[in-house]
């Protein structure tokens, strides 16, 4: 996909900002574990009076 985008920007049929495109699926694979652990570690800190109701 990225190679295709680069070619079409060069041809003038894709706008220049598409060069910033990235594969979100690839990126997500690496961070799922970090997110899961952060969620667990911070869950105890997030119980504030304003959140007690109606959760």
């Amino acid at each position: 996909m990225i190679a295709k985008i680069k070619k079409q920007v060069k041809n003038g049929i894709a706008p220049l900002h598409l060069l910033s495109s990235k594969n979100l699926t690839e990126e997500k694979k690496g961070i799922t574990k970090v997110r899961a652990s952060l969620k667990y570690e911070t869950s105890f800190l997030q119980i504030k009076p304003s959140h007690r109701f109606p959760l």
Binding site: M1, I2, I5, L16, H17, L18, L19, S20, S21, K22, N23, L24, T25, E26
Partner: peptide, 16 residues
């Protein structure tokens, strides 16, 4: 932003 799917991947564009 540009969003495109190819096979099992999702591609997105940002500010450049």
């Amino acid at each position: 932003p540009f969003l495109a799917r190819e096979k099992k991947s999702l591609f997105a564009s940002y500010t450049f």
